[in-house]
Amino acid sequence: MLTSKGIKNVKEGFPLKIQADEVKNVDIDFDQDFISKMVPKLDWNALIFAAQCVGHKEDLPDTLPEGYENDEDLLRKLHHILLEVEVINGCLECPETQRKFPISNGIPNMLLNEDEV
């Protein structure tokens, strides 16, 4: 979850809206412990927003349920969204300025011009 806070006068710059023009699904081995360890570090609302942008909103509950550590079904969905869905081409949009940052070959370009900082 990147931010566009570097832009002059932008307060939060978060969450950035993802426009996914090309998405690739990669296969990564499911590691339940690892995903479960990652969960508390996530900003759940931002994750839902990101999931919605890439068409996976229906996979996630509105709030993180208690006992998620043992909910394999949920952890598998999170594994897929967090690790296997790669936005190859598209852009990220700043919620405050609508400045768009291109994503190409899976790499977001967050560089700003001198007059923007």
Binding site: S4, K5, G13, N105, I107, P108, L111
Partner: peptide, 30 residues
Amino acid sequence: ACRVTRETGKLNGVKIETTCTDLVSAVQDE
């Protein structure tokens, strides 16, 4: 460099999420 970093990771079976930014500007909040 961002592209090459990602490719070097891939060649060695490692997933590296790469962001083009000045130092840590776009990632420091996250």
